[in-house]
Design a protein around this nucleic acid. Structure first.
Length: 583
RNA sequence: GCGGCGGUAGUUUAGUUGGUUAGAAUGCUGGCCUGUCACGCCGGAGGUCGCGAGUUCGAGUCUCGUCCGCCGCGCCA
């Protein structure tokens, strides 16, 4: 139908006869001449409907309203002297309309397209209108470029794109599954995949060597600004490969994806061990766009005269005393603010938050009296304190202190507005522990198919795994590991996780069995595509980069899913609903 | 499950210590207008103040409950 796109017209098209298709972005009826700004996904151009040029076109233009779908035929001409619009890309030209077809009308809109003040709730209900705005299109244009770049580079590196099942087996380790009832097998359920993990490992056993997939994944957990119940991963796996091979592919992929989206990034990225990340930044996904690293001062506090601190300091295995230096903090923050920080960390289980202020004549603060001059000097030295700095202390249980001090670090950085917004700071976090113990229960930190480095450790929590995460600006962008390819190791890990042989057989028997038929060593990684696009487009919410996202209570405002179903449907599925919520 | 913030014309919002007919902008709509581009001018319609109780002579405003949205905690192998 169309000969040209609106936004692509330029002075080189002057005198051309064109046919344009699009939506009426706005109209200005002067009684005589009528201007219509026609919009398609390339941009806007001004149509001029003058009765002197075409009586019919002008007559049709009088009934045009916002968002009518139009097909306009006419001639491109230069705008007259002083009539140019510098705010419009096509502002030097306009199209004199000879024929105007109203293809579709629009009833009054629930909101004005492009009005940035409109709330998200209404925009999601009419998401197809929200998506009409150019900023939305730009996000999905980039998303498309990114996935195509990822596909191309993986293809170029010999990866095979394979689709794995969406109706699969429930493995209630980890996140909750979305369940799908089986009609044929009444009372039994499929699960939607949380990731294609096991199938891609089976593809390695099959000898496919290198696999990838842009895979939909599902997790029935509560939502966040960066978490949706269904999301997309760029998932890949390779045989006869280890951590370094995977990291190389991942870095090449990120470079290609960022390049396709107009950003230049430089691999190889920095690396930090899980242990260092936790000890210095109190997080396994540290935001390294700013420093604010924690300093260990447990040995100094052991010598102090405050029994609470010195007792905490005695148990260096279970406890931590960490100091967080805030450059210029004493000048920036009032005493009241510094006291207020304590309330913040208390929310995360801290029993208090000590602080010193670096004055001209040395450290000051309520705690100084417990320390010798030499130890105060040592604190100044270790944290490299300058006059005007403040330094905060967290003391107590290791896990607790690292957690709240890590959160406090982020809180301070945002409060002080020292987080650069135009930087992409990648870091690999490596050497994750294999297990963590919570309330006496052993859990896999990554997943039970991750290769442990050495299972013969005295403490189960000290067993490391060959697992690695890629972190960008404090967001976990992806994670992967070398997988277990020997059945005896897999069985041992499942045993350490407290999974009985019967249970292991029932849930993962097919995997362990497959490993018995000659499994190659293999490793892989999966990127969270949505988060990647979110960071690339500087969106504040993952919903912005998903065409039809769900609200925080996992509903679709547009379709009203989830919704009740007929009893007939339920009957076929052998399902009876027990408690029906009031509508 | 928990904590915080919010819900008033289609939209974005104002609304004081509880007090007359809930106000504005924008959108919509009728009319006028031949160079606008946030067009302009004149007129009009449009409100279950999320919902339900309660307190009160009187509730958008206070109390309780509830629903919805957002941010966070738990959760997310």
């Amino acid at each position: 139908m169309r000969s040209n796109y609106c936004g692509k017209l330029s002075e080189s098209d002057i005198d051309k006869e064109v046919t344009l298709c699009g939506w009426a972005n706005s109209y200005r009826d002067h009684g005589g001449v009528i201007f219509v700004d026609l919009r398609d996904n390339s941009g806007l151009v001004q149509l001029v409907c003058d009765p002197a040029d075409s009586k019919d076109a002008h007559k049709n233009a009088t009934i045009v309203r916002d968002e009518f779908v139009l097909i306009a035929k006419g001639k491109v001409r230069a705008r007259g002297e002083g009539l140019e619009n510098p705010n419009l890309d096509t502002g030097k030209i306009e199209v004199v309309v000879s024929e105007l077809i109203i293809e579709s009308k629009s009833t009054a809109l629930p909101f004005v397209i492009n009005d940035e003040k409109v709330g998200e709730e209404i925009r999601l209900k009419y998401r197809y209108l929200d998506l009409r705005k150019p900023a939305s299109y730009e996000i999905f244009r980039l998303r498309s470029k990114a996935t195509i770049a990822a596909r191309n580079i993986l293809d170029a590196n010999g990866f095979l794109e394979v689709e794995t099942p969406v109706l699969t087996k429930s493995t209630p380790e980890g996140a909750r599954d979305y369940l799908v009832p089986s009609r044929v097998h009444g009372g039994e359920f499929y699960a939607l995949p949380q990731s294609p993990q096991l199938f891609k490992q089976l593809l390695m056993v099959a000898g496919f060597d290198k696999y990838f997939q842009i895979a939909k994944c599902f997790r029935d957990e509560d939502l966040r600004a960066d978490r949706q119940p269904e999301f997309t991963q760029i998932d890949f796996e390779m045989s006869f490969a280890g951590q370094e091979d995977v990291i190389k592919v991942a870095e090449d992929l990120l470079e290609a994806v960022f390049k396709a989206c107009g950003h230049s990034i430089q691999a190889p990225f920095n690396r930090i061990t899980y242990k260092d990340a936790m000890e210095k930044y109190g997080s396994d996904k540290p935001d390294l766009r700013y420093d604010l690293a924690m300093v260990d001062v447990i040995d100094i506090f052991e010598r102090c005269e405050n029994e609470i601190f010195s007792n905490i300091a005695k148990n260096k295995h279970h406890n931590r005393i960490k100091a967080l230096k805030v450059p210029d903090g004493d000048n920036i923050f009032s005493k009241r603010q510094m006291k207020g920080f304590e309330d913040y960390v208390r929310k995360f289980g801290a029993s208090g938050l000590g602080y010193f202020q670096m004055k001209e004549d040395g450290l000051k603060g309520p705690l100084t009296k417990f320390f010798s001059e030499a130890d105060l000097e040592e604190i100044v030295k270790r944290a490299d304190l300058k006059v005007g700095d403040a330094i905060f202390f967290g003391a107590g249980d290791k896990k607790l202190v690292l957690d709240y001090m890590g959160r406090f670090r982020i809180y301070l950085a945002e409060l002080m507005d020292i987080v650069p917004s135009d930087v992409f700071e990648f870091v690999w976090v490596v050497d994750f522990p294999m297990f963590e113990v919570e309330d006496g229960r052993v859990k896999a930190l990554h997943h039970p198919f991750t290769m442990p480095k050495d299972l013969d450790c005295e403490h189960i929590e000290e067993i490391e795994s060959i697992a690695y995460d890629i972190v960008l600006n404090g967001t976990e962008l992806g994670g992967g590991s070398v997988r277990i390819h020997r059945p005896e190791i897999q069985n041992e890990v499942l045993r350490l996780l407290g999974i009985s042989d019967e249970e292991a057989q029932e849930k993962f028997g097919f995997l362990v069995e497959a490993l018995q038929y000659g499994a190659p060593p293999h490793a892989g990684l999966a990127f969270g595509l949505d988060r990647l696009i979110m960071l690339l487009t500087k969106s504040s919410s993952i919903r912005d980069v998903i065409a039809f996202p769900k609200t925080q209570r996992a509903q679709c405002m547009l379709t009203k899913a989830p919704s009740p179903v007929d009893n007939e449907q339920l009957k076929e599925l052998s399902i009876r609903v027990r408690d029906i919520k009031k509508v």
